[in-house]
Every structure is written in structure tokens, then in C-alpha cells.
């Protein structure tokens, strides 16, 4: 009794599955599949999975606000009246940026850093307006800590392997002017407004790849005045790592 029930059930299943298999073939002659189903580069219809349209359409970077951070090392070239104070190239600059990337080409961000420059002048006489004449070896230092918001336009989509951009940053910078006469210091600390246009490129190597490299040239203009400096201008060339994620 039990055996006959099981046999009937098996027969029924066989019939059902047979009907299910037959259904798609009804009416049309099946096209021969040019590649086996297991090919990961082809979809069920034999079309290549990888094409620019699909990636553009499917990338999360292109659909949501995504994130990007970068840490860079740079050299600073004093420009304009900054050169009256320190004329040498600064080898000590670090920059940290955070960006919110919109699905198209724009991004908004924040940036900060630590920029230091120093120059030692041989012993010379300086006469101050107060009347003192000072003979000293001067060690001129300038420390800049920018705190700026940025807006950038990228010339490629957010998931692209290479992303050149133009950027403008605005905000301010904590300035620490300390000129040592021997070991005596003339110090001025101030927060001054700043504006900094930049061009740069991020290179990830592959679409959607997270980690990449970045180089940037930024022209910093800090509205800072003290002694020799009448507006601190600086061309900052930086290179480092960048990372995008969502």
C-alpha cells in the first residue's frame, strides 16, 4: 500500500518536472547557446556582463552619496610676499581631506593639515621702528594649520579609475609666525581667512577600486599680515593615498 503511494508520487513528480522543462521550448526553436552557462563573463542571454553601460548603471558610486578620504605629503613653495619672510621650499607638509561625493561630478569636502616652513638667516643687523638695533641669527618659522571647506568638480564619474578634478577651498588657517632672534622669539598667532584653488587627479587603476593615489597642486592664499608678510601665498604640491568607499 505504502509502496504504491510512493511510486505514484514519484511518477507525478517526474511528469511535472518534464512538463516544466518542456515549457520554454514550446512554440520557438531554442537558439544554440554559443558559450556554456558557466562562463562568468556572459549572462543568461549570452551577452557580455562587462560593459560600460552596465557598470555605470549598477555602480553604487553613481547612485548614492559616497565618501573619499586622502592623506598626502607635500612640499610648499612660498609665493608673493611670503617670500619676503621665508624664501625656501618647505619640505614639511601633511594634508588630510574628507569628501562627500555626489552621484554625478560634484563633491563637497573638508580639509585640514599641518604645514611648516623654516629658514635660518646668517647674522645680520635689524633696526626696529622702536629704535633698537638687533644683531642676531634669525630662525624664521611659519606654521599653518588650514581648516577649509572645499567644492570640487570631477571630469569623470565617481567610480572611474582616473579622476581628474578642479577644486576650490575656502575657510581659514591658524597661523603661527615665530621669528627667533637667537633664542628670543617674535611670535604672532592668528586665525586668518584663506582661499585655495586646486587641480589634481586621483588614480585608482580600476573602476570601483577603493584605494588609490592622488596628486594635487593647490595655491593657498591666506589673508594674513604681519611684519614682512602681506598676504601669505603658498603653492602646495602634494601626493599621497586616497580611499573611496560607501
Amino acid at each position: 500500500m505504502n509502496k504504491s503511494i510512493i511510486m505514484a508520487a514519484l511518477l507525478g513528480l517526474a511528469t511535472l518536472s518534464g512538463r516544466a522543462q518542456d515549457l520554454p521550448e514550446r512554440g520557438t526553436t531554442p537558439a544554440p547557446n554559443p558559450t556554456p552557462r558557466t562562463d562568468p563573463n556572459r549572462d543568461a542571454y549570452g551577452r557580455p556582463r562587462l560593459n560600460a553601460y552596465n557598470l555605470m548603471r549598477e555602480s553604487t558610486y553613481s547612485r548614492y552619496v559616497t565618501f573619499n578620504t586622502s592623506l598626502r605629503y607635500g612640499v610648499g613653495l612660498p609665493m608673493g610676499s611670503s617670500r619676503n619672510y621665508i624664501s625656501t621650499i618647505s619640505p614639511a607638509n601633511a594634508l588630510l581631506t574628507m569628501e562627500w561625493q555626489f552621484p554625478q561630478n560634484f563633491s563637497l569636502g573638508l580639509q585640514t593639515g599641518y604645514q611648516y616652513n623654516q629658514q635660518r638667516l646668517p647674522r645680520q643687523l635689524t633696526t626696529f621702528t622702536s629704535g633698537e638695533t638687533i644683531s642676531a641669527v634669525q630662525t624664521r618659522t611659519l606654521t599653518m594649520t588650514p581648516v577649509m571647506a572645499s567644492a570640487a568638480y570631477y571630469f569623470s564619474d565617481p567610480a572611474a579609475p582616473i579622476r581628474p578634478y578642479v577644486q576650490v577651498a575656502g575657510g581659514g588657517a591658524f597661523m603661527n609666525y615665530t621669528n627667533y632672534y637667537g633664542t628670543l622669539a617674535d611670535t604672532d598667532k592668528k586665525f586668518a581667512g584663506a582661499i585655495a584653488p586646486a587641480i589634481g587627479v586621483k588614480v585608482f587603476g580600476k573602476r570601483e577600486k577603493g584605494l588609490g593615489g592622488e596628486i594635487q597642486a593647490q595655491y593657498q592664499n591666506v589673508f594674513y599680515k604681519y611684519n614682512e608678510i602681506n598676504g601669505a601665498q603658498n603653492l602646495l604640491l602634494s601626493a599621497g593615498l586616497t580611499y573611496r568607499w560607501y
Partner: peptide, 20 residues
Amino acid sequence: ACTDNAVNNLTPADSNVLIT
């Protein structure tokens, strides 16, 4: 590299300041 140790390497002769 920072302001605080900028003059650590001054020789005694270079550290001298004459104010008149």
C-alpha cells in the same frame, strides 16, 4: 619639524643677540 625645536641646533655663538 615644528616651531618648538627650531632653534635647538643653534651654536652658542649663533644664539647670541646684541640689542642696542
